[in-house]
Amino acid sequence: MESAPTDRVWVWPNGRTLGLAAVLVAMCYAGASQSNGAAYLLCFILTSLAIVSLVHAWANLHGLGASVESIPPVFAGDDVSVPVVLTARKGGSHFGVLVSVSDGAPSAHEGAVVPESPSRLEVRFPSPARGHYRVIPLRITSDYPLGFFTARRRIKVAHEFYVYPTPHGDLPFPLTVAPTRQPRDGVRHEGDDFGGTRLWRPGESQRHIDWKAAARNPVLLTKQWTGETDEILYLDWATLPGLDTETRISQLARWVVTAERGFETYELRLPGKIVRASRGESHFHACLRALASFESPAAN
């Protein structure tokens, strides 16, 4: 967990402050050179307006609550989308609030945050390196009320999310396919109930390929019938020697994705971590999480 959140509102001048200063100097100069008391008065009123707007800018972000809702995991290279919830302090509203994840990143804009209903907005930012992250640094800014000053606030929200490794690599599936059970008679029970499909592997009869599905999907699938052997696909770190870590991780991620798409039962084996054979949504994510946090380069 990170250290204490730096949750203070700072008000900074911006480009428009300079513009205003130029106009104020012009007014003051006009007041002096034309001995124009009215110009002086205008100048002083605008000056103090700027000062007062600074206080208002500060107060606008003061007490604004920000939290993050569950962040869906992404593959490295995609945008992380962070659902942010802004809540107003009791009895106050906040206007023109801009939220971004870090400096320079695109931000999401929210008009007004009022006490009764928290506002939700989605901030997207390019995903960092794969890994398991626990803190989202949010940057909240607002130019309200006059725009001559920018109030800024940084909040570190404790929230975990995963950046999965990019699935990459075109090595064939490892051939370590171990049957869990021996087929009862060693013969396929063709003509029995259709039991779904799984990934077609080279060497299998092309008659079993689900050609209709092949038209929709780039991967070839083999039709299966119940009673067929239930096989486990072992996706093992050890079968990829001679490659660097990231390439291996990417290749494993590619296999996981392909295996899941092919309705396979698969098991992921990493040094020190084994995700037991299974399939389905939660298993898929468990594998990718394991890959994401394996020797993660992200220090977060």
Partner: peptide, 16 residues
Amino acid sequence: LLLQALPIAVLLFLFF
């Protein structure tokens, strides 16, 4: 804002 700005404006007007 204008109303809140008045005190400082008066101050500046008198003493600037």
